[in-house]
Design a binder for these strands. Structure first.
Lengths: 327, 327
DNA sequence: TTCCCATATGAGAACGATTTCACGTTACGA
DNA sequence: TCGTAACGTGAAATCGTTCTCATATGGGAA
């Protein structure tokens, strides 16, 4: 059932059917005739042929480091919402935290019109990433990191951490920090800087041994908290880069008999489900993950449709959520 | 940069280039010449043109009710793992629990070769679903429900619930149940039956008023537990269809001054992150979500590649996880 | 009247691959 | 020596659209 048959049945040329489907410039009679035939046959144009001819696929590639993660899945929820609404399909590329696969997918997408646009939920941006992004023949929007080589939507990690750290530091003298590797500029570098600056404002200088690097897991948070108790026993605050790490730290403190927030205050970041469930409930920061996905998709659609009224860069807001793990 | 230019540069016909890319039957010299040219130019065949000509897209559509959910995102993690490995791309269709959109996506995928296969992560199967599935011109595998009209992978909800309920019932006389709507055959119907049969085996008949229906949320679990305390105050066990509901029930019991598991035992199902964090930790069942995704994808790939050694139906195993919310 | 523009239509050329068909080579066994 | 099979190759058809051009008609402005 192709456009030729429809044209024949409706007594017109296939160009007219194509016009009926796209432009206009079709008389009322022919228009009605074509509609009748299409309704009767249930004809649907081949998206392949259309893609081949027009060079547009109506597909957007979304590269994610990991799907089984609360923050990422919320972002994807926001992205799919907007993109489906706008008539785009979403091609999902899950890299399982493998940088090489990330670049590989960027290349794959750049292969002759696989997609009309790309969203990259980023953790680290290596030179290979930059190169692959620059080589991409379609628009890209990066979500989660502030980059200069393309549009991006990112969290205000610095201010968010500065804000929550200020609360953690109330009545404290010996704050400690558990962060993640600096290569993740947003979560590693910016959040640590927010913490350090917040301390400086409170007139506290933080010694090197009071700051540690963890993985993005609960267990790693536990281990680093344990190490802190060893190397920096006078600590009275542990500020953590994520809720998962904070939960690990919380568990460790309990096992070592330190009360929270009595002896030690603890904060996380993400406002994850965990943070409301643990005892004591965790002071954290709510980042608008789903909304950031929505905004990213809007930005990409704007670029793809040539709407240049949309900004090229968006810094998301945040809300400090004060619960019971701080004084 | 198309196949014609490559052919010209390599001094062969484009048919030979095509053969080089696919079949074989190319002499060593020409093969080398073509390889050289392709490497130099970085030529990549147009997937559109290929799809148009062959009718194969190398894309699999995955329809999910909700991405922002621990179980679904784990399934998708397993699915993408296998499918990417097998050279397929994943087209994600997020319906946000909207049945109409679910059917709409099934139809969309059936439109002229959008995809080579479909995976449907199902909650309810309506007659419209059955119709749309039957009309699909490509293979479908349903994940999460046992259906007869196509291949499927599903959890052993009945036995899993029967198993965990047996533990909950130890030393109990008045068990209650909070489930979900029966239209969800797996989670609603089968789990409730597992509970009822487990009670029967223990010689207990459960009155109607001891069984309630909740949404899939913590708050709803709280509400239904509250209602149970009203209508069935003698209860000494609450078996819940999911961990989220169980967590709500747990919170409710604490607020009403009932100790867990002293006064009332509680169980959930899913082995979610919550279940290990709440106090007391929750007795539940581990269902292999990611693995079920892996198996589903394998099954679909098997069907698509015409490998008929693979089974058409797979019931997943489970493990009861006994923690501190039961006696 | 003449010219031009807006509306309306169809023929045919792309788009970039695969695939069929037909035709050369060799090489081998009868 | 010749039929036959296996290997190699290119010309041309094909997939189902969109898009460019050429053409036609009616109406309003000059």
């Amino acid at each position: 059932m192709d456009i030729n048959q429809i044209a024949q049945m409706a007594g017109v040329s296939r160009a007219t059917v194509s016009r009926y489907l796209n432009d206009g410039y079709v008389s009322q009679e022919k228009r009605a005739a074509i509609r009748r035939v299409i309704e009767k046959t249930g004809y649907v144009p081949s998206s392949q042929a259309k893609a081949l001819r027009t060079g547009k696929t109506n597909v957007v590639g979304v590269i994610i480091p990991k799907i089984n993660s609360a923050s990422v899945s919320r972002m994807v929820a926001g992205i799919t919402l907007v993109l489906n609404e706008a008539g785009y399909r979403v091609l999902l590329a899950n890299t399982d935290n493998d940088e090489a696969r990330e670049v590989e997918f960027l290349r794959l997408f750049s292969e002759k019109n696989q997609v009309d646009g790309v969203i990259l939920i980023a953790t680290v941006i290596t030179p290979e990433h930059r190169e692959a992004i620059s080589a991409l023949p379609v628009p890209v929007v990066v979500l989660g990191q502030n980059v200069d080589l393309c549009s991006c939507v990112y969290q205000d990690d610095y201010e968010a951490m500065r804000g929550v750290a200020a609360i953690a530091l109330r009545g404290a003298a010996h704050p400690a920090y558990i962060g993640v590797f600096e290569e993740d500029v947003a979560v590693g570098h910016m959040r640590r800087r927010g913490f350090v600056d917040s301390c400086a404002e409170a007139g506290i200088e933080v010694p090197e041994r009071a700051m540690r690097i963890a993985e993005f897991t609960v267990d790693s948070g536990y281990e680093q908290a344990e190490a802190l108790l060893e190397t920096y026993p006078e600590l009275d605050v542990i500020v953590c880069a994520t809720d998962a790490i904070a939960y690990g730290a919380l568990t460790c403190l309990r096992e070592y008999g330190r009360s929270v927030p009595g002896d030690v205050a603890v904060t996380g970041m993400d406002d994850s489900e965990i943070s409301q469930i643990v005892t004591p409930t965790l002071t954290t920061v709510h980042l608008h993950y789903k909304t950031s996905g929505v905004e990213t998709a809007r930005m990409l659609v704007g670029i793809m449709t040539g709407d240049d009224s949309i900004p090229r860069e968006l810094k998301m807001g945040y809300e400090v959520v004060t619960r019971n793990s701080t004084r």
